[in-house]
Design a protein around this nucleic acid. Structure first.
Lengths: 213, 213
DNA sequence: TAGATTGTTAATCGATTAACAATC
DNA sequence: TAGATTGTTAATCGATTAACAATC
């Protein structure tokens, strides 16, 4: 595993998954080689930015030639942490929790959803997509025993921080939060908000602003 | 409806829903008045930024006193476009589409989901949460007839742009995209990506970077 | 009045873009 | 060699923070 100082700041961090997607597209089109100009045009950013970004993790291109799609893709894949497998659990089997559990390609992409947890006694003991639903009181123990790395929070917002706290105490490494609140934890636990409402309100805000002109 | 020049740039746009959430929290706690310092501390940003942000849409506070929670909340609510009702449809009744359709509070928040659309003949004619599923070939007509404003895209990524194009032709105003690709359209149509994979990869990336140190 | 806190201008910081030498 | 395109430094642009006069 690479030990070099990876200097990935927020703006770049947000661009990385896009680079990954566009490079995958090129790969699927059987394009072997690309340039910062071509990639930038596709993505709607400057070639300067592309080169600046890629240089954050060392010279990946060849002067005069460009970038090898496969090599670049592999490097970004690694930086994104997609070369590892992850043990995942989902807390809260409501609409979103259920639909994430049903996402059958999760395993093939490296995310093994080991268990679901809920408070509802009617759900406990059932399964979704072959994944068992357990009592949320057993979650802490489960995380510890199985060495679960990622916890997905799909509980109501007033239970979200408490659920996160339990995950953190149990030694989870990352939390993917779908509840409609910001969650807080120690620096060594990564917390990513996927708050869907925020995204929807961003849409309506921009629709609203457009109308003002 | 306000006609003033609303100068909301990307970084502020991303903070607005957070302000909205934190102010709602204060309101629920029956706090009548707050200051840029208090709000900033809660949200982990500087008071300077809070004041700078709020000043983008005119003096909302009182020197020496602070901000009225209710007034501020109302203003931000309006800027976010949450004072209007929206006619919404969902294209693609897979996992995500299904779970969004099942979100029963949508209507009370101003989003009326009028119909679902899919290609699968087995789904057409069924309903989710009381909302009918129609043939996706009828989507264009439906949008035109009912004056649908927001289209949610939950189709597979290779069908996403084509689906968006149909929505745009039919005169949709905003697209909320859950497919794993960037979508493009004319400037007068707002497109918001809620690409969940990007969010997940951001999480694994940060987990990966933490481990490098 | 004194203290608090805004609105707003100026200073700083960081991110993006431009430019160009290095080199394939 | 000439053309292309990177890696990298410098210039620009924009966003955040600091400072402070205005004023409640």
């Amino acid at each position: 595993m690479s030990r070099g100082k990876l200097n990935v700041r927020e703006p770049l961090l947000r661009r990385l998954p896009r680079y990954y997607r566009y490079l995958n597209e090129l790969k699927n089109m059987e394009v072997k080689r690309t340039s910062s100009l071509e990639l930038g045009e596709r993505m709607g950013i400057t070639s300067s930015q592309v080169r600046q970004d890629f240089n954050c993790f060392g010279g990946l291109g060849q002067q005069g030639i460009g970038y090898e799609v496969n090599a670049l893709l592999g490097r970004i894949r690694k930086i994104l942490g997609l070369n590892s497998r992850y043990k995942v659990i989902i807390a809260g089997v409501g609409n979103i929790g259920h639909s994430l559990a049903s996402y059958s390609e999760a395993a093939s992409e490296g995310f093994d959803i080991l268990a679901l947890f809920d408070v509802n006694p009617r759900l406990i003991g059932c399964s979704v997509n072959g994944i068992m639903i357990y009592d949320i009181d057993d979650m802490k123990e489960f995380i510890r025993e199985k060495g679960v790395e990622i916890g997905i929070i799909c509980v109501p917002k007033d239970r979200a921080q408490a659920t996160a706290d339990i995950m953190i105490e149990a030694g989870i490494k990352g939390i993917w939060n779908f509840a409609d609140v910001d969650l807080y934890g120690p620096a060594e636990v990564v917390i990513e908000n996927a708050c869907l409402n925020d995204s929807l309100y961003t849409l309506t805000c921009r629709m609203n602003i457009l109308q003002c002109f």
